[in-house]
Write a protein that binds this DNA or RNA. Structure first.
Length: 783
DNA sequence: TCATGCCAATTTTAGACAGCATGTC
DNA sequence: CTAAAATTGGCATGA
């Protein structure tokens, strides 16, 4: 199908696509148009990665906007949201505006209301529904990217429920779901009342094969010699082989440590092949990486990067991740070894994809579990860059002939698994049942069940009554914790009498049970709006209610760390003892009742939360990044993630404290502010001044400048002595509201000098300094 | 007595969304 | 039910 044949697009859109080098639609895209993509018809497109899924979405959204509507594009990751934003922003040429909204992106309701296309994460959309964003009812087109993630145990139910709610909100709305090729795309299409485009067509060929011994055997029967020399690893031989043809490679491994070790070895392969110019550019990139964070992980990464290789996993900071991804896309980096993060993330195609480890540690399986076919296919789908590579190659590694055969059977010739809804899992229902009640989607038990009937789970469920029984369990949990109220007919039907009840009576009971009204309490509304798991909220509320004296920062940090919304830090061997001791030392500070030591699992969780809590405490006591990452054996990305989550949870805890009229609201606020800025209590005022962070605040404080007012009155020499650079100092003074911030001709004072004329403050600050130093040492000694 | 080298036993193990209101070194 | 690499610990050896 030719671009000219398309109708209903905004004027200028066709020209834009032509400029992008698009003349003709790919077959699956043409199929989608035939199925009514540009006419507002519902559509499920199950096609491989990089075969033009976004174009299908774009055609649907642009035609919807041209008809006077508004479109929403739902993505699973923040990083993908900005990737799509960049892509859609080009439509501004012909007057179509795009806005993004995610947890960490600026966005007000009115601002979004003016945009034609809005990009958001599924959780953000869920949150918008809960908070009743007005523009949601104006949507005429919703695109859900990577819709197969409905299968994900943690985040799948959110997407599923959100799609169901959007459809209920706007019955006339067009739904376009984009999926990887999965086993049951037809089922998803049925659920969404959509037509299906199911295709494995790709714009460039993908050859799949297994490497064993010295040979690479492809699925079409062809073979390529790739000898493994000396003691080198298979992946090294494969990377070298394709590098000699000028192709880059992506190696998927099972753990972070494996990724780092492999990258370091592969640097030995790519390093010698680099041109002088590349070396210079890579050295600059390495400097940027070291600059971003001063940790062991960063140094290791920078060392690899200098030799044209890199590792990629969630321990990297987001800046480092994008630096690596961008450099790989620009072909500056020749090889990346990555954990499965990269397979689901932003677009990073390579000529050759090597899936080295096809088993991964999975605690729920009690050991190593094979990767899903879908997951491996997603990894392999990264092979081949349209327009740049003649073809893509995906290679699995086998160590024996038997394994080689197994890999062909298990992954290359196998169909991907079916997508199964995970909605009936209790944690998921807890959140979504409360949200559904709080936002008024359901006012009775019957109404709630009716809504749940519209989910994929209900359409797949084979076990009749399961959803209903879990829902009832969840409802009583929510009622027990004062999140909802059930009215009338609450009395449980007498189970013992069941045997004697007639069928008519049962039906009658059922009916009255369904008429039972459900209403969120004020607390319930708050929890739903804050986007908390009700169980997290309950934990926090109980913790705050039980506190008899002002909670310490550690107490609050441990409290939020033991909620299900905080991702757990894992206790390493020997640490159970270490944190057990710390627990007895600081037991009095912790909020709520500790589980008994004999409750193996729960006690361990409690200690793991204590570990996370001390990490946050260290951060709030101004330990630097390097100290913390080393002490807890984590990467910079993990630290920032933890701090981020804690900030969010403590913010929510503050709202909850206000809601239940807790007397500790201020303590919570202070603990949150300390985590946010990573500073001790005494610096909180200083960091509120623009341009002052944890490091500068500490230096100013040591020089005797203790609060914003001191910035206005202290001698300039002292301030300049504490801060390096005139420009910085001037900027800070201006932010502090000083009359004449100019630093012209001011000489920095060295050493600790009294900042104020009376000199008394210098004395106090010295004392505090000693205390802080002591504190740091004692906590260092603990580890 | 202490450093060194080797082998066996032990340890470790992926990921990242969300409120609200604005800006680090 | 399943793996693999790195680290640690124990022991023998040699100076």
């Amino acid at each position: 199908m030719n671009l000219e044949e398309l109708s209903g697009l905004p004027p200028g859109a066709t020209d834009h696509f032509r400029q992008e080098g698009i003349e003709e639609l790919y077959p699956p895209q043409a199929e989608a148009v035939d199925a009514g993509a540009t006419d507002g018809e519902n559509l499920v497109a199950a096609v491989p990665t990089a075969s033009g899924k976004t174009m299908i979405a774009a055609l649907a959204m642009l035609s919807a906007v041209e008809r006077g509507g508004k479109a929403l594009y739902i993505v699973p990751l923040r990083a993908l949201a900005s990737e799509k934003r960049d892509e859609f922003e080009a439509y501004e040429q012909f007057g179509i505006t795009t806005g993004v909204t995610t947890g960490n992106y600026e966005s007000t309701d009115d601002w979004l209301a003016t945009k034609d296309i809005i990009v958001a994460t599924s959780e953000k959309v869920d949150s918008l529904v809960r908070n009743g964003a007005g523009w949601l009812s104006e949507l005429t087109c919703v695109v859900s990217d990577e819709v197969h993630l409905i299968d994900d145990r943690n985040r799948g139910p959110t997407l599923e429920v959100t799609l169901a709610k959007l459809q209920q909100l706007n019955p006339a709305m067009q739904t376009v779901a984009l999926s990887a090729t999965v086993g049951n795309a037809d089922e998803i299409a049925d659920w969404l009342d959509a037509s299906l485009v199911d295709s494995d067509w790709r714009p460039i060929d993908l050859e799949m094969g297994v490497h064993y011994g010295n040979a690479l055997n492809f699925d079409d029967g062809s073979t390529r010699e790739v000898p493994v020399e000396g003691s080198e690893k298979q992946e090294a031989a494969l990377v070298r082989d394709i590098l000699q043809e000028g192709g880059s490679s992506l190696v998927f491994v099972s753990s972070r440590r494996n990724a780092e070790a492999a990258a370091s070895r592969l640097g030995g392969v790519s390093g010698p092949e680099l041109s002088g110019e590349e070396r210079t550019e890579l050295a600059e990139l390495a400097a940027e990486i070291r600059d971003d964070s001063d940790t062991e992980t960063s140094k290791d990464l920078a060392d690899c990067v200098e030799r044209g290789a890199a590792f990629h996993h969630a321990g990297l900071s987001s800046t480092q991740r994008s630096l690596v991804e961008d450099a790989f896309r620009d072909r500056l980096l020749k090889v990346i070894s990555a954990t499965p993060t990269l397979a689901a993330g932003v677009n990073t195609p390579a000529r050759r994809v090597i899936v080295r480890d096809w088993r991964r540690f999975d605690p729920s399986a009690g050991g190593m579990a094979p990767l899903d076919v879908l997951e491996v296919h997603q990894m392999m789908g990264r092979a081949g860059r349209p327009g740049l590579d003649p073809y893509g190659e995906a290679v699995l590694l086998a160590k024996s002939h038997d394994e080689s055969q197994e890999l062909f059977d298990r992954y290359i010739w196998a169909d991907p698994e079916a997508v199964r809804s995970k909605l009936a899992a209790e944690p998921a229902l807890r959140t979504h049942v409360l949200a559904t009640i709080a936002s008024g989607f359901a006012r009775t038990r019957g109404g709630l069940l009716e809504f749940l009937e519209a989910t994929l789970y209900a359409s797949q469920s084979s076990e009749a009554g399961r959803l209903e029984s879990v829902t009832d369990e969840v409802l009583s949990y929510l009622e027990r914790n004062d999140f909802i109220e059930r009215d009338g007919k609450t009395e449980q039907t007498n189970d013992d009498a069941g045997a004697f009840t007639s069928a008519a009576d049962l039906a009658d009971q059922q009916r009255s049970k369904n008429e039972q009204t459900l209403e969120a309490t004020s607390l319930g509304h708050t929890v739903s709006r804050l986007y908390l798991d009700p169980m997290s909220a309950a934990e926090i509320v109980h913790g705050l209610e039980g506190a008899e004296e002002r909670p310490t920062a550690l107490g609050l940090y441990q409290l939020v760390s033991r909620t299900p919304d905080m991702y757990e830090l894992y206790l390493r061997s020997g640490e159970d003892e270490k944190f057990g001791e710390l627990f007895y030392e600081r037991e009095r500070e912790l909020l709520g009742d500790a589980p008994s030591e004999f409750e193996e699992g729960r006690f361990e969780d409690w200690l793991a939360a204590l570990k996370t809590g001390t990490l946050l405490e260290d951060w709030a006591e101004e330990a630097d990044e390097e100290t913390i990452t080393e002490r807890y054996k984590i990467g910079p990305g993990d630290l920032r993630g933890k701090v981020d989550t804690a900030e969010w949870l403590l913010g929510a805890a503050e709202s909850l404290a206000a809601e239940i009229d807790s007397e500790w609201t201020v303590a919570v606020r202070e603990a949150r502010a300390r985590v946010e800025h990573g500073v001790g209590e005494e610096l909180l005022e200083l960091v509120s001044v623009g341009g002052v962070g944890r490091k500068r605040a500490r230096r100013l404080y040591e020089a005797g400048v203790e609060e914003p007012a001191d910035l206005r009155s202290a001698e300039k020499e002292v301030i300049l002595g504490a801060l390096k650079g005139e420009k910085t100092a001037e900027n800070i003074l201006e932010n502090a509201g000083r009359e004449n911030p100019s630093m012209d001709g001011v000489e920095p004072a060295s050493g600790v000098v009294s900042a104020t004329s009376d000199g008394s403050k210098a004395g106090t600050s010295d004392e505090t300094n000693e205390e802080t130093a002591d504190d740091n040492q004692s906590s260092l000694g603990d580890f």
